[in-house]
Amino acid sequence: MPFWLEIVINVAFSYIASVGFALTINVPHRALNSSGISGAVGWMAYWFCFRLGMGRMVSNLISAFLIGILGLFFARRKKCPATIFNIPALVPLVPGMPAYQAVRALVAGNYTQGQELILRVAIVTAAIGLGFLLSTMCIEAFYRIKYRHFKKIMLYMKRKR
């Protein structure tokens, strides 16, 4: 399969998957498209980072960071809480699959595999949480700096006048 086709499939499917999940959790109509976009961006960030060999933790952290920033950006534009965009966007990243596989391995008696999977769930969850925390911090710092400079410019213009 050519590389561009893989990219097209990944973008389209992550968008569709985020919108599909948004339908099942009853996201407001005006937020459907934006949550799909941030889902596609997050998944593509993860995909590229993982392909570049950055490992699971760093790729998840970076994509959660991007999703968090996009969510806050959309939240300011559409006047919704940021969670509305973040929850559907996270669906492709979230470690639900290894969590289920871990329990299945335990049920089947493969304890070593189960432990490995549980550890993977913990690592991915921690990475996503950290990414979100970083994004909140960055956005807050960004707006503080922006407002401070904005105020300075306004004062300067007043003085000039």
């Binding site: 929850i87 996270l90 669906v91 470690p95 996503i128 949480g129």
Partner: peptide
């Protein structure tokens, strides 16, 4: 799957 619940 409970991935979202875990992340939240």
């Amino acid at each position: 799957v409970p991935g979202l619940a875990l992340t939240n």
